[in-house]
Amino acid sequence: MSTTRELMTQLRARMGCADPLPPPPLATEITPPPARVFPTTIERNGYAEAASHHTTAMVGIGAVGTRYATDIVLQFQAEMAVAREAVATELPPDWAASHGLLPLQSRVHDHREFLLRPDLGRRLDDDSLARLRAQADKGVDVQPILADGLSGVACMETGLELLATFTRECETRGWRVGTPMCARFARVWLSDEVGQEVGARVAAILLGERPGLGTGDGLSAYLVYEPRIGKTDSERNMMSNIHARGTPPAQAARRLALLAGAMFDQRRSGVTLDLAPLAADLGEAAGQGYREPQRRERLVETSK
């Protein structure tokens, strides 16, 4: 009922008019929505659950009605936090030198700029360029570059192991491997400039990859034949998910060496590189081979 109508009702009573007013027009009746029933039990698809034993991806998690189970939501948030922390981790400036690597840095000055300006992360700053020209071996077959990329954690954790095993794999094949180096605030395309400067036939940048759920420590490797500034992504071959729960570094190093070998044979890289002859050697990367059952690591314990 409106305020004015109430006021007028008061006034009528005061002025001695006792008979009731006609009823106000009825408001349109609004039908309530149908009662909703919220289920409380988790429903799982048997196939998806079976598949979930073979991957750390979040499959087979079931649903409670139309929602995730609380436990899943908590795991999800915890893994999200791990991913965000990995992005926020900075590679310390002296880390490369203290591990015997040639320290390089892109034109980026700080971490925030690194996240916002991919273009600056693709070129070396002047000091680094001078250092590279002065100290790195020239005319090599393979130039591996360790870099932080989007996960400094991955670089510091498994980066050294991958660099060492990859170098060893290349050397056993009789290739000349370039000076070990580590680039800070680096994007993938930085390998073009480095490779061009040292005159490498293949540049391989091993860098922390954009973290996903539960994988803050994954490395990616990008290989390019005859690196030159201006090479595009279609001229690169890459391998992702290099970490203990994905492709272990030792296995990854072997496959990367096979890829580099194919590049030397075919004198190209990228989408035109024919991987068919490598199918047998690449093993499960080509969709063959058995994969051990995997168990997803729980980051949060819930009581039930």
Binding site: R5, M8, L11, R12, M15, C17, D19, L21, P22, P24, P25
Partner: peptide, 8 residues
């Protein structure tokens, strides 16, 4: 009877 609403 006064102050009776005249509905529009």
């Amino acid at each position: 009877m006064i102050l009776e609403p005249i509905l529009p």
